[in-house]
Design a protein around this nucleic acid. Structure first.
Lengths: 312, 312
DNA sequence: TATAGCCGTTGCCGAAACGGCAGCAACCCG
DNA sequence: CGGGTTGCTGCCGTTTCGGCAACGGCTATA
């Protein structure tokens, strides 16, 4: 089912690999063929699509415009294929997800496992990244669904849903703070603290609040792995910060306590956004998973807000 | 700039013309070439795209799916072209509008004239149709922007804006009703009435209300032209029904009076929707006009509601 | 019932496009 | 200064495409 001119596919491969010869290897054709198609494209558009650097190709402005068009075409082709397939009952395809780390503990594996139980022939590709990398991967067409901190998102992405979760302190069961219902940031900083590095978005949530405090002691530990921070907190090394989403299993085992943060009487929110490329209609199997994801996150949001009502 | 395989373009032409030979004439190629491309497509998709009737071709279910994909591709190609053109400062293209008749008197000509004054190289195609035909033309990709009564719209269309205008009685200045501020339907029916035929959406707005009345006299005149109804009302032939949008000039000349309808104390609304194909990003010049259209209709809605406040 | 006018499809053949191979100059890095 | 890479370009066989003419199927009209 390859009814689009080879130039389209070749251009797409060259953009992704950043090199004509590399693209040719991926496509299993001679590099000369790829080179010629690119040149032909540039002639028809009437403007160069790539800047030829010594070590590969970079998109020009016009090239980026064409890349956007080609991405729309190829992604819509995928959707068409899945539409035709689902007509004959065969539901198969690959859902590609880019996601931040806080969902790896329970949300994502639970959902994927459940979905695979129902639709065995739908496979998944997941990639864990930082929030801004998630959005970037989505923009570049390397993922279908993106889950990230709800920052300002580029206009070519669409925010499907926005769920807010309370940020809280994570401490071991034996920790002195563990018997409190809520904690303030100042109370936490009296103890050794496990801080996130700037590449994690928790850093950007907490930093403004910490900066307001009169004194800011050195954190005991800084890390860029949520998993590591969680495990450290469970061993009583210090106080970590997370939403409850990220500590599912250890919380169920009662090894970890989640204490909602109280910032001058109001909660500290961590906004989670679900994103999709705006100029695109998703294949049926992807759309189906997307809706389950939104429903599940909504459910967790609801449950949390019942467990820790907003009025502290 | 034809970097999509000929099969795509041929398929599109065949779908629009409903015949291979007709498509070949439009495309300036031999009919055999078109036939072969269609057969090749069907082979690659693995399923027939058209049903061969004695007098032409009709899309199958799979064919409709491919038609949707092809439409997305070609419309997005248009947008890409306009993006490239606007990069070099040249803003040109054609905005294609499908619209119901009530806007032909002032809204549409005013807007188009103003826009052409600013962007001389943007041309327009307008087609006046009934509401459901407007939506259908939009779905088939025969228009970029659709303006129609806000019925339930198919899921492949997106409602960009929804503006509501008061439905009113239109009478000549000398008409006995002309000195009233508002009128009820019963009051109107005491006089000769110019009714819309079912193909106009006013009919479907008024019919339910008329049916509620104890007696429903025969209308004096039935017509399917808003222009004609307006001119008849101006000549004192009877009472017609319209929104104020459709009677601009004659109203300015004070030949016609607009009397908002009062239905048991509440106004009768006529909802106007602006529509666009959902799976599509508009070219810059089209988007620009669309925004002016939405702004202008919003402005008219606001002005009307000030002239005839909701509380009667 | 015969016929003229559509329709889509198919063989045949020349023309155009495509892809593979090998070799070119330009560049980076050690 | 070589060894590696990059993209580009003749040359040539293969594939694809399009035009022409003809065929069978169908409809409407005489």
């Amino acid at each position: 089912m390859r009814f689009h001119s080879p130039a389209i596919q070749y251009f797409h491969a060259v953009r992704r690999t950043g090199s004509i010869r590399a693209a040719a290897r991926v496509l299993n054709v001679a590099s000369s063929a790829v080179s010629r198609q690119i040149l032909k494209l540039e002639q028809e558009v009437g403007s160069p699509l790539f800047e030829r650097n010594a070590r590969g190709l970079t998109l020009t402005t016009v090239g980026e415009m064409l890349a956007r068009h080609v991405m729309n075409v190829l992604q819509d082709l995928d959707r068409f294929r899945s539409d035709v397939a689902s007509l004959s009952g065969a539901w198969h395809g690959t859902v590609s997800i880019a996601c931040i780390e806080s969902l790896t503990e329970s949300v994502l594996p639970d959902l994927i496992a459940a979905h695979r139980g129902r639709a065995r022939r739908v496979s998944f590709t997941t990639e864990i990244k930082g929030s801004s990398d998630v959005l970037e991967a989505l923009s570049r067409g390397e993922a279908d669904i993106g889950i990230a901190m709800a920052l300002r998102h580029p206009p070519d992405l669409r925010q499907v849903a926005l769920k807010r979760f309370r940020l809280g302190a994570i401490v071991a069961r034996e920790h002195p703070l563990a018997r409190r219902k809520t904690v303030t940031l100042a109370q936490c900083l009296a103890f050794p603290v496990i801080n996130a590095l700037p590449e994690l978005s928790i850093y950007h949530l907490l930093q403004p609040l910490i900066a307001q405090l009169p004194e800011t002691p050195e954190p005991a530990i800084q890390a860029n792995s949520i998993d590591l921070m969680r495990e450290l907190a469970a061993r009583g090394v210090g106080v970590a910060f997370q939403t409850q989403l990220g500590i599912g299993r250890l919380s169920r085992d009662s090894q970890l306590m989640f204490l909602p943060l109280d910032n001058a009487g109001s909660p500290v929110w961590s906004d989670l956004g679900i994103y999709v490329r705006a100029e695109r209609t998703l294949p049926a199997y992807t759309e189906s998973f997307l809706q389950e994801l939104v429903r599940e996150l909504g459910e967790r949001e609801r449950r949390e807000n019942m467990a820790y009502p907003q009025v502290t």
